[in-house]
Amino acid sequence: MNLVRSELTKLRTTSTWWVFTLIMIPLWALAVLYNWGSSYATQQASTASDVPADQAEVVQVAGEAINVATTLYTSGQFLGVLLVMLLGAIIVTNEFFHQTATTTFLVSPHRERVILAKLITAVLVGLLFWLVTTVLNLIAVPFVLDALNVPVQLGEAGVWRAVGLNALAFALWAIVGVGAGVLIRSQLGATLTLSLGYVIGTMGASLVFFLLAEYVAEWFEKLQVLVPTTASALMISGTELPGNPPRWVGAAVLIGYALVTGLLGTAIMKRRDIS
């Protein structure tokens, strides 16, 4: 556990953590506003009559009070996990960017222990980010729900389950980040690839799956959960959404990604020549 302590010291003694916190707060505020707006739109739609019949059911369920609440109480997930993933990657790429990998592996030549320490550190940081956004949500969201004329619902098990699964999502994305950092050694390369891949990849994948479902076979839509962002979004829905896989599938998919990147990263790091 000395290594985890060392990793936390590394993180604490540079400006990275507070830069990320500074980025996090406005993004969170933006997310709350966005969710507020979209919840309002859903509310309007679910009471309107011009929604196509096949979508009506989904809109109806999404407009239920519990789902409005879970969406809002987990505000900031989409961009929050992106930041946590980036931070996880930077924990690794930093070592190459600043050539500190040499020192790190001299102190601990058993590299798998170093990677494990980095995974644990990234998860801890991910959970910290989750904690911060959750506390902020618990303070701000009741006012938003009030404005939407939806009950606060802090007594609902569904809300707390969503908040809990959101923590899991943050932790798993942190692991994916560390793995990705090993695979893409360049700091700039990793940051750009992950951010662009995350945002554009999510949109691109939705489009691809939409087209596949539309023109090839409808069951392709069910595979959309394989897109990691869809998987983590699925985990935090308040109730089962019609036409979507159950929540545990989202968790399983994300755990799969975390395992693959984490293990692959460790295996690669063990073999790599540090020069």
Binding site: N2, L3, T9, K10, T13, T14, H98, Q99, T100, T103
Partner: peptide, 19 residues
């Protein structure tokens, strides 16, 4: 040049001490 540019000298050594 094997230390993080934004870290102080003493903190660089403390990271190693911790590990």
């Amino acid at each position: 040049s094997s230390a993080h540019r934004g870290r102080t000298g003493v903190n660089h050594l403390r990271v190693i001490c911790a590990a």
